[in-house]
């Protein structure tokens, strides 16, 4: 169970803005908290429970980051500063940093639905169940999320290109 869900929780926290250097600690917190409520978790409901805990932990980690000088944003700018010229090497890891930057430019609702559908590849109905909202609402949030994603991707791409010209 730990292994089968650890990666999913870790990735979700990542998409939701938990700084990378805190990811393992926060993920472990999620499982530890869940382990304290084992007797309340029905068989087959582990993932929805972990999901709920992860959302709360992500919000709390974001608040902490904000209170202590916006760690998340600093991480962005560090990543951005280390970006090479467009015609130099750019590994997958850097593409992921750009993705992360794009995600952080999206609104919270959009980012969550986008991450669950586009990155974790859950189905619309699964997302509706997890978030306890109607399927139609998931669909409209996803449409909005895609618009935000495209807008942010264009912005980030322009920034990378501009940075390339500056150097």
């Amino acid at each position: 169970m730990v292994h089968s869900h650890y990666r999913l929780v870790w990735r979700l926290l990542r998409w939701l803005g938990v700084p990378r250097n805190e990811l393992d600690d926060v993920t472990q917190d999620v499982f530890w908290l869940a382990s304290q409520r084992m007797d309340q978790i029905r068989l087959g409901s582990e993932w929805p429970y972990l999901f709920g805990v992860a959302l709360r932990k992500a919000a709390s980690a974001r608040r902490a980051a904000s209170a202590y000088g916006s760690i998340v944003d600093l991480e962005h700018y560090d990543a951005a500063a280390s970006l090479p010229l467009p015609d130099q090497q750019m590994e997958q890891g850097q593409a992921r940093e750009l993705l992360y930057e794009v995600l952080q430019g999206m609104s919270e609702d959009s980012r969550l639905v986008f991450a669950l559908f586009e990155l974790e590849e859950l189905e619309i109905t699964e997302i509706a169940r997890l978030l306890e909202i109607p399927v139609g609402t998931v669909g409209s949030r996803l449409r909005r999320a895609r618009e935000e994603f495209s807008r942010e991707a264009r912005r980030v791409r322009a920034r990378v290109a501009f940075q390339g010209r500056e150097r």
Partner: peptide, 24 residues
């Protein structure tokens, strides 16, 4: 390219092992 890059993202095997050992 951005969306594809997400596929390789995840915790290190060592982190999973450590967490599993610590938790279970």
């Amino acid at each position: 390219a951005l969306l594809r890059s997400a596929r390789g993202e995840g915790p290190s095997p060592q982190a999973v092992r450590k967490a599993a050992a610590a938790l279970t």
